[in-house]
Design a binder for these strands. Structure first.
Lengths: 178, 178
DNA sequence: ATACATTTGTTCATTAATGAACAAATGTGC
DNA sequence: GCACATTTGTTCATTAATGAACAAATGTAT
């Protein structure tokens, strides 16, 4: 891929993240993004149809990264599988902290929950084991919301615990419930 | 000016500063700069004839900034005139610290001394006052080397004192000798 | 509702960046 | 010294970014 494309898209994404830390997404104009990214306004339309498309693509990229991490961590126990997760979150704290903070919350949080449901769907087994006899959707919802809640807490409170500790703790909690 | 030009030149300058913090300027290749800046190697030649030209322009830009600060601070006493100086050095600590550190030292340091001599030339008066009867070049050399020495110490030791303190201290030392 | 300003989305000619290819020059090991 | 690899400096056709201009749509104040 032409490095000019990567560079302008990078600049645009960083700009959106920065702006969303400052104000509501609805109050952000294409001009704001252009100014912040130092990319001509017209150029933005060469890459995205509008600011929602830009945000979507930005979110979707991270979701895809997370999905790949999940895939490559399959067959591990939850403790080990969680480590790359939390390391990824830490590496991209600028994105995740602004996305999980007040202003841009709904856009990303909803997508995040949707993604987690998708990922955990196959992990829940109500035919035997710990969750035998329970309602699948209830268990799924229970797991996913707790997961999001913990991640949200960790990110927005400055990631005080190191990733490996988070991975271990959350790993144990998952083992206990799946 | 076309923002693409500014952006690639910015990237190239940042790359050179970064690389000079890591290795000797002679060991830096155009390819290194291209990789670090994420700018096509060919593009570098659209802006600079070679890496020395790039370094020269980088240095000269800062020298010019410093000259402008001097001009606008003329007619102040040394204490006030020094403040914008040290603030500028602080803002550009990445440049000045690597340039005054071991590896890239000669290139910038020599130019820096040359510039200071130029600036202080008109300040030294051996026909009357504190320096009456002294040799002009000796006094000039005395002032300039002490100035460079103090700046060098301040920068390379992590700028422990805030700029306004440095400005005050150096201001007093200059008053005493000019 | 009306006037007015801002933002949007698109066009287009111009300019800059790209990367590949290449020969020449410059290291580097033996 | 000689082979060999790396780096340099240049070319060129292709692609991306630019900013200006514009009409349309969307706010905003009165």
């Amino acid at each position: 891929m032409d490095r000019r494309i990567l560079k302008t898209q990078e600049a645009l994404k960083r700009a959106v993240i920065g702006l969303m830390a400052e104000k509501n997404f609805d109050d952000i104009t294409i001009q704001d993004i252009s100014d912040r990214a130092n990319v001509s306004r017209g150029t933005i339309y060469l890459h995205y149809v509008d600011k929602f498309d830009l945000l979507d693509k930005l979110i979707e990229e991270h979701i895809n990264e997370l999905r790949e991490i999940c895939e490559s961590a399959d067959e591990m126990d939850y403790k080990d599988a969680n480590l790359p997760w939390f390391e990824y979150l830490e590496r991209n704290y600028l994105f995740f902290s602004t996305m999980l903070a007040s202003k841009g919350a709904p856009y990303f949080r909803n997508r995040f929950v949707e993604f987690l449901i998708e990922e955990f769907k196959d992990e829940v087994d109500t035919t035997k084991g710990i969750n035998h006899g329970l309602n699948e959707d209830v268990v799924l919802q229970f797991i996913v919301t707790s997961y999001v809640g913990v991640v949200e807490w960790w990110i927005t409170n400055g990631m005080l615990l190191p990733p490996h500790v988070m991975a271990e703790q959350v790993g144990l909690l998952l083992e206990r419930n799946l």
